[in-house]
Design a protein around this nucleic acid. Sequence first.
DNA 1: GCCAACGTTGGC
DNA 2: GCCAACGTTGGC
Length: 152
Amino acid sequence: MRHWLMKSEPEEVGVDHLAAMPRRTVPWFGVRNYQARNFMRDLMQPGDPVLFYHSSCAEPGIAGIARVASPAYPDDTQFDPASKYFDPKATRENPRWMHVDVQLVKKTRLMGIGELRSHPELAGMRILQRGNRLSITPVTLDEWVFIERLLD
DNA sequence: GCCAACGTTGGC
DNA sequence: GCCAACGTTGGC
């Protein structure tokens, strides 16, 4: 089992939006970065724990705990010319973009990026590195345990 | 709005 | 296959 951090813009899909979805689950559509796709396609397993992170907003930080809720499958938005995620090079026979479903486990207090930075134990997290833009990043077990304790 | 960082694109 | 240009991300 691996642990993950997944960024989402709360203007698009925030923790409250996720909480209101049927089965508190959303397809993680719209990822158009190969590294992030490969994490979902090749490494994620249903049940993997996920830190749900709000980014590009007034209060960036961890806002909830979620889990991977499906194996990877093709992202429908790549086939839809009306979608901003449309990819003309993708076909049904040869999908380029895959994603998993993500299910909210629980909303947590907001653990802001400043608080994350304040803990030397978390200094290695990708999310805290300068210039990091990857929307899905692995979290070590040590980091996961440390953060989960602080969220309680 | 700024700007550093980084992924992608495309000409060669 | 190189690499400059460009676009996007995301914290501040």
